[in-house]
């Protein structure tokens, strides 16, 4: 699929923006953590869209946030998705 851009996002309603970002983020997160991808994506979607766009373009940024999210999830003792 073509890259997601800020202008594409801006043209969509707010919740659709999160949907678009989630659809792009999920496969990348799933490759890292298949069992927790849904929860991690849900957490990351609470971040500002501009930062999410940056994460899509910067694997280092994404990995950093994913690591943070996992630490928080473990602190909340979230069970793995079956």
């Amino acid at each position: 699929p073509e890259p997601l851009t800020a202008s594409m996002l801006a043209a969509a309603p707010l919740m659709d923006q999160k949907q678009l970002l989630g659809e792009r983020l999920y496969p990348m997160i799933h490759a890292l953590h298949p069992n927790l991808a849904g929860k991690i994506t849900g957490m990351l979607l609470e971040i500002d869209n501009s930062e999410l766009l940056h994460m899509l373009e910067s694997p280092e940024s994404l990995h950093s946030k994913v690591d943070e999210a996992i630490a928080v999830l473990q602190a909340h003792q979230v069970k793995e998705c079956s």
Binding site: M15, Q19, L25, L45, L73, V78
Partner: peptide
């Protein structure tokens, strides 16, 4: 919400409309 919702965070599923926190805290 009492701030200790054990269902947090909401889970994103590809292809399913994302409702964010509305999923768990109506």
């Amino acid at each position: 919400s009492n701030g200790t919702n054990i269902n947090w965070p909401p889970e994103f599923c590809p292809g399913v409309p994302w409702k964010g926190l509305q999923n768990i805290d109506p």
